[in-house]
Design a protein around this nucleic acid. Structure first.
Length: 103
DNA sequence: CTGGTGACCGCTT
DNA sequence: AAAGCGGCCACCA
């Protein structure tokens, strides 16, 4: 029942447009609480639906995606982003170009 | 019930 | 300018 907060986060992540990347802090802020950054990470950690929740489109404030994702391989994560049209720079995403504004 | 942790971010020194 | 520390929320033992 406490999934309400989680659903809020999942809803934001699910709304991330293709070819764009959102940060934990941004998702947390859109969720309604800028301090949920850690909970957001935990929410994706449980990731009940990785098929509908593009956790690979969520990166930290530095644009570096979590290595803990390792969902089938770290390279798979990068490959997914590249497949979406995101250019990865040294394993990092150019937030200046692909940072989702939250539209 | 309390303590500790976690895919984080922001502020302070 | 850079580095370090704490804080917030939720979950697990």
């Amino acid at each position: 029942m406490s999934e309400n907060s989680y659903e809020r986060i999942y809803d934001i992540v699910k709304q991330i447009p293709k070819g764009k990347v959102a940060t934990y802090g941004l998702v947390a802020r859109l969720a309604g609480n800028p301090r949920w950054s850690r909970v957001v990470g935990y929410a994706l950690h449980v990731n009940p639906d990785p098929a509908s929740i593009p956790c690979h489109r969520v990166a930290n404030r530095f644009g570096q995606v979590s290595s803990a994702f390792a969902f089938g391989g770290e390279n798979m994560q990068i490959r997914l982003l590249e497949s979406e049209g995101v250019t990865l720079t040294d394993g990092r995403v150019d937030l200046s170009e692909y940072l989702w504004d939250g539209l």
